[in-house]
């Protein structure tokens, strides 16, 4: 008789746990949010975001902001598990370990999307220029999925290292460059008003990267948490 909780039920439980913990503490999303607003302000002064420059750099600014904020979120979300011994508790649970991986990834993905959902309107208001479009939202969905897929894996490695405060960005950034390039290019296309069907190549590419990174992370995650 199999007493294992079903795979999807386990994923749902992990996501739910993260969402409730976040709802009570509000430290992750608020931290990411304040941080990303600061990044936008720093960009504003360092790049002199006048209307002419903005046309070419908006996609880059948005993605750098999302990715930096994402690093903070990933580090925090795994560090919480590690510090309070929750990770051991999770691992002791009689569920498939990849369910834990997917649960954590999807929770991190949700947090990144919440932050993006606030940043985009704020950016639009600050620069009096609507950047929100279905295409851009779609790119952010795909791009951040690939990012958290590999980020959750590497963050769970980084928090177990002695140098964990500096390790995550160093491990993560060189590896997610393909996703970043495709995301920035596709976002830029949507921002300057290129038609959707001309950018489908970038969308397909992003989707392919998402599949590759998610499946690789899924396959090796067991090796990262086994003790």
């Amino acid at each position: 008789m199999e007493h294992k909780t079903s795979f999807f039920k386990a994923i749902k439980a992990v996501i739910w746990k993260d969402l409730i913990a976040e709802l009570r503490s509000k430290e992750l999303v608020s931290g990411m949010l304040v941080f990303s607003l600061l990044v936008i302000f720093i960009f504003n002064f360092s790049l002199e975001l006048s209307p002419s420059t903005r046309a070419s750099v908006t996609a880059g600014v948005l993605w750098v902001t999302i990715i930096f904020a994402g690093t903070i979120g990933l580090n925090r979300s795994m560090a919480v598990e590690k510090d309070r011994g929750c990770l051991d508790g999770l691992l002791l649970a009689p569920v498939d370990r990849t369910a834990i991986y997917f649960g954590k990834s999807i929770a991190n993905w949700i947090f990144m999307l919440i932050v993006a959902a606030i940043i985009l309107p704020v950016y639009s208001i600050l620069y009096n220029h609507n950047v929100i479009s279905i295409g851009l939202v779609f790119v952010i969905l795909l791009g951040s999925e690939g990012y958290v897929a590999i980020g959750t894996l590497l963050a769970s490695m980084a928090v177990q290292a002695r140098t964990r405060d500096i390790l995550l960005p160093i491990l993560l950034f060189p590896v997610v460059i393909p996703i970043l390039i495709a995301s920035v290019k596709a976002s830029n296309g949507f921002l300057i008003g290129v038609a959707f069907n001309e950018l489908t190549n970038w969308i397909y590419l992003l989707a392919a990267y998402d599949v590759i990174f998610t499946s690789v992370a899924f396959m090796v995650f067991d090796a990262v948490v086994e003790e």
Binding site: M157, T163, R164, L171, V175, V216
Partner: peptide, 26 residues
């Protein structure tokens, strides 16, 4: 840098194997 950050040899071996795979795919 990942290797240098981990003291426990068994864990260090596992993590660097994972990163070598991920890096090579990327």
């Amino acid at each position: 840098m990942l290797r240098q950050g981990i003291d426990d040899p068994e864990r260090r071996n596992r993590f660097s194997a994972v990163y070598a795979i991920v890096g090579f795919i990327s």
